[in-house]
Design a protein around this nucleic acid. Sequence first.
DNA 1: CCATGCAGTTAACAACTGTTCTCTGGAATT
DNA 2: AATTCCAGAGAACAGTTGTTAACTGCATGG
Lengths: 208, 208
Amino acid sequence: MSHTLGVRQAQKQKTRQALLDAALLLLEEQSLSSLGLREVTRAVGVAPTAFYRHFRSTADLGVALVEEALGSLHPMIRTTVSTADDSEERIARAVELISRHVEAYPAHVRFIARERHGGVQPVREAIREQLVRFAREVKDELAKDQQAVGWSEDDLLMLAHLYVDQMLITASLFLEALDAAPEERERVTRLATRQLRLISVGRRHWRD
Amino acid sequence: MSHTLGVRQAQKQKTRQALLDAALLLLEEQSLSSLGLREVTRAVGVAPTAFYRHFRSTADLGVALVEEALGSLHPMIRTTVSTADDSEERIARAVELISRHVEAYPAHVRFIARERHGGVQPVREAIREQLVRFAREVKDELAKDQQAVGWSEDDLLMLAHLYVDQMLITASLFLEALDAAPEERERVTRLATRQLRLISVGRRHWRD
DNA sequence: CCATGCAGTTAACAACTGTTCTCTGGAATT
DNA sequence: AATTCCAGAGAACAGTTGTTAACTGCATGG
């Protein structure tokens, strides 16, 4: 806001972003726990020691990637779930939204799916933390709906987590189908749609 | 069956199992894609080159671990879902069964959760293949139930995948809660129970 | 009993890793 | 205009990795 940051810091952020981008690319066919510091700097074209100017370790870089990746997932999840009442068209729209997001940011989706249960503890925790935040937001969104009158806070949070997990599973399926035949993507769409539908039916008849 | 296998092959299988065990132990705090061949042999106490007598690569060892880990998950999933009609007590029993399994084979559960979306393609495919098999079996089990009269094959398979995924999510939550306070495990139990309950409600009111 | 098979060993290789210390050029500050 | 600061370079380190080749000892089958 105050002023455009100097040439110095601009260049620094530029190489920092280059490191993040290169890492994300390399992580398409390996996990973070095997990603080497030199490997990343080599891909960017800077000296290995330059890495330390930006990150303490590759685990540290991983945590930064969590922020970036879930920063892009955030608006997607909000939009998806805020329109997640039961009507058939809205479920279809939610699935479509997930599909589009996977096409737009495949590397981000892959990273989160892979490192959520991956071998680097700080990264796992960062992801878990963010997903808990998301679930809470989803819960707040669900609470606004008229369907939620008889629901306890705990039950709403339970449903929210179900939605968030289901969303990640669906995104992961779309990811696997990315370079497959279009009919495969159609299959995933229909599967995800019906699973969401079943959850919605359960939600509608919960208070019995 | 035919005859007890010779001293030679017995010893071979013994070190092979030792390699698998050591690998599983090392994989508690890293992913397969960073697991080194020498690391494993060092832990067992054999020469690095001995590794090649049993596995082509660590990826190959990973595929073998999939067989082992899902071999132990197999009966668990069958039992869980075959008793998965709607009654409250049976849901509770299923969750209890998952919890017990995680306590009995934490390393197996961790391995599957971690490598399902991990960085080693052959292992990912092996896991996916096995889970599809499981889902098919679960589908067949569901088809036997009286509730399944109006259901199409596709819808049954859809529900089966939902159950399988939910089971893995729950197992993973129990795993994280393993060395936490007992109250945390109780929280996971109640969460998983209600999520399964919601799916059951959706299942009961599906044909509307 | 002797010859073969084969699980595991030893040694060596080129390549790679993370981390340290020292240095440099140019932007930022005074 | 002079000084400080600091992102990145360069070189070197001890340690690691996967893979090769040639070997040894012992259980096995003829």
